[in-house]
Simulated assay, not measured.
Amino acid sequence: MSRDQGGRSDAGRPKRTPTGRGPAKGSGPGKPVKGSGPRFAGSTKSSQPTRLPARKPEPQVDVHDPDGVRLQKLLAAAGVGSRRTCENLISAGRVEVDGHVVTELGVRIDPNRQKVHVDGVRVQLDESRVYLAFNKPLGVVSTMNDDLGRVSLADYVGNRPERLFHVGRLDSDTEGLLLLTNDGDLAHRLQHPAYGVPKTYIARIPGPVPRDLGKRLREGVDLDDGPVSVDSFKVVDSQPGKALVEVVLHEGRKHVVRRMLDAVGHPVESLVRVQVGPIRLGDLKSGRTRRLTQDEVGRLYSAAGL
Rank of each mutant, 00 (worst) to 15 (best):
K199E: 04
A203V: 11
P210K: 02
P208H: 10
D222A: 15
G226R: 04
K199H: 05
G220D: 03
R204M: 08
D224P: 10
V236C: 04
D225T: 10
A203S: 10
L217A: 02
P210D: 04
P198N: 05
E219W: 06
L223I: 06
L213A: 10
S232G: 08
L213H: 04
P210W: 01
D224N: 12
D224H: 11
V230I: 02
K215C: 03
E219T: 14
T200Q: 13
V236G: 01
D231F: 07
D231W: 10
V230S: 10
S229W: 00
D222Y: 10
D224K: 13
G214I: 01
V209P: 05
R211V: 03
G220I: 12
S229H: 13
G220T: 10
R211H: 08
A203M: 05
V230H: 04
I202L: 15
D222L: 15
L223Y: 09
R216T: 12
G207N: 05
P210G: 02
D212N: 14
K215G: 09
I202H: 15
R216S: 10
S232P: 11
R216E: 04
G207K: 06
V209T: 13
V228A: 15
V228G: 02
V221A: 06
F233M: 08
R216C: 08
V209R: 01
V209D: 01
P227K: 04
P198V: 08
V236I: 15
R211G: 15
Y201N: 09
D225Q: 10
L217N: 05
A203K: 04
L217Q: 03
I205W: 00
S232N: 05
R204T: 11
K215I: 08
P227W: 06
I205C: 08
G207R: 02
P210N: 01
K234Q: 09
L217E: 00
V235H: 03
K215R: 14
P198G: 05
P210A: 12
R204Q: 09
P198I: 02
L213R: 06
V221R: 07
R204P: 00
L223V: 09
R204S: 06
V230M: 06
D231S: 14
D225E: 12
G220A: 12
I202D: 01
K199L: 12
R218V: 11
R211I: 01
K234F: 02
I202W: 14
G214E: 02
V228C: 14
R204L: 08
R204C: 03
G207P: 13
R218T: 08
V228L: 14
V221S: 11
G220F: 10
G207W: 07
G226M: 13
K234S: 14
G207L: 08
P198K: 06
E219V: 12
G207M: 06
L223E: 03
E219S: 15
S232K: 06
R211W: 00
R218F: 00
V235M: 07
D224V: 11
D224C: 09
I202C: 05
E219H: 15
V228D: 00
T200V: 15
V221Q: 03
D212Q: 13
R216N: 09
V221N: 09
V221P: 13
G226P: 07
K215Q: 14
V209I: 15
K234H: 09
P210E: 04
G226S: 07
D224S: 15
R218Y: 00
E219Q: 15
R216Q: 14
Y201T: 09
I202K: 11
R204N: 05
V236E: 08
I202T: 11
I205A: 06
R211T: 07
P227D: 04
A203L: 12
